[in-house]
Design a protein around this nucleic acid. Sequence first.
DNA 1: CGGAAGGTTGACGAGCTTCAAGACAGGTGG
DNA 2: CCACCTGTCTTGAAGCTCGTCAACCTTCCG
Lengths: 248, 248
Amino acid sequence: MPRGHPAFDLFVRKLSQRSILTEDERQAILSLNGREMEVEPHRDIVGPGQVTDTSCFVVSGLAARFGQLRDGRRQITAIHIPGDMCDLYSLMLPKVEWALQALSARLTIVKVPHRDLAALCRAYPGIAEAFWRDCVADGSILSQWVVNVGRRDARMRTAHLFCELGVRMEKAGLGQRTRYRLPVVQVQLADALGVTPVHMNRVIRSMREDGLMTIRAREVHISDWAALATAAGFDEGYLELRQEARRL
Amino acid sequence: MPRGHPAFDLFVRKLSQRSILTEDERQAILSLNGREMEVEPHRDIVGPGQVTDTSCFVVSGLAARFGQLRDGRRQITAIHIPGDMCDLYSLMLPKVEWALQALSARLTIVKVPHRDLAALCRAYPGIAEAFWRDCVADGSILSQWVVNVGRRDARMRTAHLFCELGVRMEKAGLGQRTRYRLPVVQVQLADALGVTPVHMNRVIRSMREDGLMTIRAREVHISDWAALATAAGFDEGYLELRQEARRL
DNA sequence: CGGAAGGTTGACGAGCTTCAAGACAGGTGG
DNA sequence: CCACCTGTCTTGAAGCTCGTCAACCTTCCG
């Protein structure tokens, strides 16, 4: 089996948490390859209206999908951490409607041609299923975000996002849920949570003053997980991966 | 080929708008069957935490997924119109995190066993792909909802929802985008848009006074589509089905 | 006729935005 | 080494959107 890009063991790891993969399938995914590149912030990796023929695997750093209004206001609809294949859904709908950008200063991705992903799906139905399940799991997070911005106030929303990221980071092996690197600025948190940067700042301050959490040097430190989770109304069920991961 | 439930030609119609299906595949889907039932509002078809072994096809009426906070506040995360297979994603993640309920007074669904859907996927990779694409398309709508509740004010949000539903109804052959039946009460619109019922009422009144649209006898009538779409910042790209619907 | 459900309206307050300014840090050039 | 600049964080004050509470109205239906 030819060796692919070394970062893809992160991808196998993530898929295996949700789906059952045979050894053949694992090896097939590990043999994937693509163009590695570093992306600077505020530059679209893919932009709305484009038809793309690649998906982007996050090696290090953070990526995000942005929706944009005509007046320039932005809303982040998804945050992708290392190990995520963002734009996997574009394999099904290659015309993308959202901008994908770097969220952190240093973002390294691998661009994987749809051609190769499609070949894998044809050869191994189990891989197609794992990809499908991955898209659905992203949708589950998206549902939670709708609830978040729709029905929680700014403080709950913020607490909820930090809980979600903590759990996702931990599951991906990138830190503990109570302490993880988050190389983003407050403006971007505001864009993710649907508030203004000014208000974002006040909310973070208030949570710091209440002893819930602190952010220093791009690192989140949650001092009281239970209190934060309660304040957020956080229930990690929607991130639960290891359910009855049967094969079709 | 055994005849299945007659309503599934709506399903084939919808899938065919997004994906290319062979005649065999169409016939296979049409042979699907399940238990038809009528559901009254405020009763969970499936509830959070349950593990389900069926998906629900909407024959007539409206269904919705609800997220709920501990204090009882609700947020609708998806509205399903006739022809939608809601809970299709549960084929991949059978443990559901959201409540599925009737939105309209009279909702008729067909409960299709996962077993049968899975058998179809195994026998016809093209059907699996169409299902996958359907899930992704739902995710695309969900992204737009995040932008909606995150960055648009109540008036824009409302206008946006009526535009979206208009286009979806039209594509499904259930009316014109400027005139369609929407058998829901204002409380439910408020739950979908993340505002209070009182404010919902004021927004609808204001839009009526501005000559944008009216709702009478559960029927939406959009008097000035262009003005409404502009007020909403509506761009139907994210609902566009007929893109390069290639097969893998 | 009476009750229930949904729609409508007013008054008031809270949460969030907007505008504006200042503090602080890191990086650059003289 | 310091002056300066730029990006980020922080804070205050004023105002608007939206939520809350409460009441009343209309329609429908038994």
